[in-house]
Design a protein around this nucleic acid. Sequence first.
DNA 1: GTCTATATCGTGATAGAC
DNA 2: GTCTATCACGATATAGAC
Lengths: 204, 204
Amino acid sequence: MSSAGPGRRRGRPASAEKVAGEPGTRDRILSSARAEFAESGYDKASVRAIARGAGVDSALVHHYFGTKEQVFVAAVEGAFAPAMDIPDLLSGGREQWGEQLAGYVLGIWEDTVTRDPLLAIMRSAVANETAAAIFRGLIGRNLLRRVAGNLGAPDAELRVELAVAQLVGTALLRYVIKLEPIASVPVEELAGRLGPVVQRHLTG
Amino acid sequence: MSSAGPGRRRGRPASAEKVAGEPGTRDRILSSARAEFAESGYDKASVRAIARGAGVDSALVHHYFGTKEQVFVAAVEGAFAPAMDIPDLLSGGREQWGEQLAGYVLGIWEDTVTRDPLLAIMRSAVANETAAAIFRGLIGRNLLRRVAGNLGAPDAELRVELAVAQLVGTALLRYVIKLEPIASVPVEELAGRLGPVVQRHLTG
DNA sequence: GTCTATATCGTGATAGAC
DNA sequence: GTCTATCACGATATAGAC
């Protein structure tokens, strides 16, 4: 998981100490990888296509990240650190948690920036155990621990997961399967209907 | 989609009119295909592995069904005709529809016979458009038309799909992602919690 | 840093022997 | 009916030139 770390590294950061020149190529690869994994899922997405999308050779992708799995981890899991690290989830009163949680999840799905990593996880986790583990880790760290901890009930974790099931299922039908009419209904309409249901799961 | 149909076919069914001897080989292939598609999803599952599971050669699989996609359709979509064709869905009163629908969906997921085709569809529909179309067709034909028709509300379809989202999301976390504790909780516990929520979606 | 070339493997599908 | 042999292709990954 650690990237480099050459042990001893002190003093003035020289202009080219080890690997200096990366004029955005690495980021372009990561961006292309996110798009590919989002569209095709882990197994179907190819390193060649990722490289093509970044305008480089496939060997260069391996040069930067190693295996395809490491590309996936770098591209997808890394993108969640900022997205999931929201400070004020469940800031309001207890009776607003449902509305807040539903609105937050729908929000990151509607945002075109955070949608790609979510699609990538979703499309990959169902057929690839590594991606499934990442998925479990994301929900565990970001929702179970944080939300269930505030509930203070013996069945808190199950409550949160049933709420997550509603939200993930909605995202699946709307953004992945594209089932009508749920795929086209305004997000405010969805939020209005899901808020109370999530609330019921959490505190009902 | 039609299988054979040699036009004129009358009189006594001769012992070997066209293709007579299929001593279960075809069924063994279908069974193996269901298992493979359930475990790996459409893209990851290979015709060779399906053939191996049936104890035959991969060429024979093509001989029977044609393309891999036709194997998938035959193995998965066909298995839903009996499973989905239940006669008494929504037989009780309006206030029991939630409980009935939740119990029915959880039931076919718990049944080890019907679970494999469901897993196959689930694992395949998220990354493969053909499988997604089958998934949409299944929900559309078996749930939207039948359940929404009984609701008699202008937003009936959206109501049903939100209920389906809850149930599909639960199945995803429990049977595919295997997220704890929802993966291990008794099914009766789940049914008790999901029934009222589904009811709320439908008639709330 | 970036790419060329290649090794190695697995895939879906088909032709044709038996 | 079932299998052998093979084609054509794309995959991941690596070695090494520049």
